[in-house]
Structures are given as structure tokens and as C-alpha cells.
């Protein structure tokens, strides 16, 4: 059977790359969403620049392939213009935690209704393995042959403190868990963020480490503090939803149930109002 969620683009990830797991999980998630009544035509994907972003070319879905670090902003613009779309923003850890950090934090702050899926391989893979903002201290890459002299961010605590209303971690090696987490993130109205632990087979191979340390959480932590403590754990890597909060999404807080791209005022309505406005300015 042909896979109608895949395009004709030639796949150029390394064999064994964690991105395959993420793409497969996404395809599963799309099918699950369709069963829940969300048509794939309403799904609009965006991606930054990096190995992660090739999902844009491979997935046979509508979307916008943005700039490195800026696709979170583009994603928010799409949602703002037409809130009936489910906007899924694939980002890399270099992309979202480096060049684009401001946009991710602000998307969380304003509770923009987009779902950010962060392919976290801890390095810049497409540009040959330099350290990322999430690389461990001591990581040796071509830009830090001496071993990285900086500590990494913790993306989960960062996003929770920024006000993200849905924060989860998953693993590219657990496709079902990742697919389910994606579905929950996309159904969450408001900003959702999934930190996907992703193996880079070529520059940062953590298969064994992740397989030993990853552990599925049974429940959502009861409090913000508990969530932060779990997210900070170094001896184990809990995966699952760390926090899920109900709060009005940005577009609703801004304009209620309006839709700027669809419910536009007609030319005639605008001209009539303008004529009245001119008399009062």
C-alpha cells in the first residue's frame, strides 16, 4: 500500500537517525487525529532549518518551511490569521533554544495555540556536529574541540517557567509514546511543547544511554514544583506530560471567536465605516 502521508522527496537522513522515529510517530499521530475528527487538511506544519526540518519535505501535508530559529514566529502568524488550523511546528534544539529562543519563550508566554515538537539531538547535525544550546559541558564538536565550556539549558524547566501550558518529553525510540504525546499536544488549546529526545547516530549517539534511562511517567505531576523536580532529574529521564494547564489561548484572548483570514469585513463595510470615521477624527 502506498503511504499517502509521504511525498516523493528522497530521504537523506543517516540510516538509524532518530528523525525516522519522529516522522513515523507524526504520521501515526495524524491518523489518530483523523479518527478524532481532525482532518489532515487542517494540519499546517512549519519547520526551522536543520536535519529535523526535512520532515517538511517528507510529509505530504501543507506547511511553511521557515527560517532557522524563526519558524515559531511564522507558526504563530499562521494561527493568528486562521485559528481553525492546527499548527505543528517542528524545530531543532539549535533552532529553538539558540537562534529562536525568544520566539519559543514568547509563544509560551502568550499561550499561542501552536504545538512545538523539538527534535533534541543535543547538537547541530546539519552543519556537521557543533555544540547546541543543549549540549553537555565538555561536548567536543568542531567549534569546541576543547570540550564545550558552557552548561546546557534545561528546555523543560525553561518552558514551564515561561508559562507554557503543555510541556512534555518523549523519545524518538518510543514511537507510540511520541505519537500519543503529539496527539495530546495538538488537541491542547494553547501552547504545547514536546522535548523529543532524539539520537544522532553520527555525531551524538545516545541510543544506549536513552534506552537505559528513559522511563514513562504514569501520571502528570501534581504540582508545578514536582514537575520542575522531575524535569531536573539527571539519573533518570522521565518521559510523558510534565504540565497541562487550562488558560485562554492567545488568539482567543486577542479577538475571541474571530477569524481574520475567513470572516473578513467586506470592502463595502470597510468603506462605510471609514467614511464615518473620517468625520470623527
Amino acid at each position: 500500500m502506498t503511504d499517502d502521508l509521504i511525498t516523493y522527496a528522497e530521504i537523506t537522513w543517516c540510516p538509524g537517525c532518530g528523525n525516522f522515529g519522529i516522522l513515523n510517530a507524526f504520521k501515526k499521530a495524524v491518523k489518530q487525529l483523523e479518527k478524532k475528527g481532525i482532518d489532515r487538511e487542517k494540519i499546517f506544519m512549519t519547520a526551522g532549518i536543520g536535519q529535523h526540518a526535512k520532515v517538511f519535505d517528507y510529509a505530504n501535508l501543507s506547511g511553511f518551511y521557515g527560517l532557522h530559529g524563526r519558524s515559531m514566529a511564522t507558526a504563530q502568524g499562521i494561527k493568528l490569521a486562521n485559528p481553525e488550523l492546527k499548527v505543528i511546528n517542528f524545530v531543532g534544539d539549535g533552532d529553538a533554544m539558540g537562534e529562536g529562543l525568544e520566539h519559543v519563550l514568547f509563544a509560551a508566554k502568550r499561550n499561542a495555540d501552536i504545538s512545538v515538537v523539538m527534535h533534541n539531538n543535543g547538537i547541530y547535525a546539519l552543519t556537521t556536529g557543533q555544540r547546541s544550546p543543549l549540549s553537555a559541558r565538555g561536548y567536543r564538536g568542531p567549534s569546541t574541540p576543547w570540550g564545550s565550556e558552557e552548561d546546557p539549558f534545561n528546555p523543560l524547566t525553561l518552558l514551564m517557567e515561561a508559562g507554557a501550558t503543555f510541556v512534555a518529553r518523549s523519545y524518538s525510540g518510543n514511537i507510540d509514546h511520541l505519537a500519543n504525546t503529539m496527539v495530546k499536544a495538538i488537541l491542547h488549546e494553547g501552547f504545547s511543547f514536546i522535548d523529543v529526545l532524539q539520537v544522532c547516530i553520527t555525531f551524538n549517539n545516545k541510543y544506549q544511554e536513552y534506552n537505559e534511562m528513559v522511563e514513562v511517567m504514569k501520571t502528570i505531576p501534581a504540582s508545578h514544583d514536582e514537575a520542575l523536580a522531575l524535569a531536573r532529574k539527571k539519573d533518570r529521564l522521565p518521559i510523558g506530560i510534565f504540565c497541562r494547564v487550562d488558560k485562554p489561548a492567545h488568539h482567543r484572548a486577542l479577538y475571541g471567536d474571530w477569524n481574520p483570514a475567513k470572516k473578513r469585513r467586506t470592502r463595502k463595510q470597510r468603506i462605510n465605516k471609514l467614511e464615518k470615521l473620517l468625520l470623527s477624527v
Binding site: T46, R70, A81, N82, F106, P260
Partner: peptide
């Protein structure tokens, strides 16, 4: 929809997204 986001970088990239959505 009128929005004052975090920076001009966000402004322009959001605007491009909004336009792509029509």
C-alpha cells in the same frame, strides 16, 4: 488582528505566516 510581539524579527516572520494563511 493587531499584535505587538517580542521584536521586529518576530513581527516580520509572524506577518509572513499570517499572509501564507491568507
Amino acid at each position: 488582528a493587531v499584535v505587538h510581539p517580542e521584536s521586529e524579527v518576530a513581527v516580520a516572520n509572524m506577518a509572513i505566516g499570517a499572509a501564507a494563511a491568507g
